[in-house]
Design a protein around this nucleic acid. Structure first.
Lengths: 179, 179
DNA sequence: ATGAGTCACTATCATTATGCAAGTGACTTA
DNA sequence: TAAGTCACTTGCATAATGATAGTGACTCAT
């Protein structure tokens, strides 16, 4: 679909969607957080066509969310694991999950999130880091001159790759993107 | 793209993506949170083809995230405003925005979120409602029998419309979906 | 050591979604 | 009366997707 560039846009939502806005991307990420790593694990879990899976896995890898890790040489077999950038996507997944849980299970059974370590039920909400207060008022993003950064914490392992990742993929044979 | 059903899937992420997984949907929602309401406002803001905008607006309306509100009869002109379900999507947008801000602005300038009321900079994080602790461990969703619901709070204004919203849209002429 | 099976893909092709350009109807304003 | 404005719709070319089938490099059981 020749997705409108969106790349140049100076909006954090748009820039985020460039990496994870494709149909399967977020579902793949969900599975990655569940611990799935291998091609066929994703395929079985998602019922996705292998073509698509290849494309999305490559796109997510190029976008820096996943990393290919070799686990078998001859034949080279890779696992796809979350990078720090990918791990940092967790809050988005949590809020999306919570939203779905709140609204789309009207048929008797309810779905809740459970901490795998403690076993406790969790109910994710979004608050401000400093004040701890719920964020529910209107928000806008504004850009700030670099000098004014005070409580900044530009997290590691990120820095955008390049745009139009999608188009390059099909043209390139696999295996060049080594671990 | 004949998007794989996904409807029957018992996963909150999948069910969420059914409503907002389309390319422009989240961007439209972002603009709706910014206060945009009218067709041409969205069009100017997004640079989206009117065809697409019609489809996405209808899809979001049918999914229950937006509501058409008439503001002019003869000719009937509608505004698209967030429903409670749509408003409740805010946490997802916030975390997505925060993720983008953290990672995709390496070129000097930084973008932060600002509370429109207080003017204070906010840094959205996801915590558990009860404990207030950061959620960063592994999480899974489990379904719970209706009876076991204790601290439940099935929020209002929700309840899913029906599936396969997309396909119906093009077949139907506009104007049947009144306020 | 032969054949079946696994794994991670790639190729091909029909189907579907998207973007673009242009057009429409019902007004409003100059 | 003519020129907008607004919210669309139509048609068509093009790009992305999904289904099915096939491939190469192994492993493993017989």
């Amino acid at each position: 679909m020749q997705h409108k560039s969106l790349a140049s846009v100076n909006c954090p939502v748009a820039r985020s969607l460039e990496r994870v806005g494709e149909w399967w991307s977020i579902l793949i990420l969900r599975d990655a957080f569940k611990g799935l790593k291998r091609f066929d694990e994703f395929q079985n879990s998602l019922g996705i066509a292998p073509t698509m899976l290849t494309r999305r896995l490559n796109a997510l890898t190029d976008a820096g969310l996943l990393r290919r890790q070799i686990y078998n040489e001859r034949p080279p077999r890779y696992e796809y694991v979350l990078t720090p950038l990918g791990q940092d996507f967790r809050p988005v997944l949590l809020t999306l999950m919570a939203w779905g849980n709140r609204h789309f299970f009207p048929e008797g059974k309810r779905i809740v999130l459970v901490d795998l370590n403690s076993g406790a039920e969790v109910d994710p909400i979004v608050v401000d880091r400093m004040s701890g207060r719920l964020i529910d008022a209107a928000i806008k993003s504004v850009s700030v001159a670099p000098s004014r950064i005070s409580k900044g914490k530009m997290s590691a392992g990120s820095v955008a790759r390049t745009k139009s990742v999608e188009n390059k993929i099909r043209r390139r044979s696999a295996g060049q993107r080594e671990t």
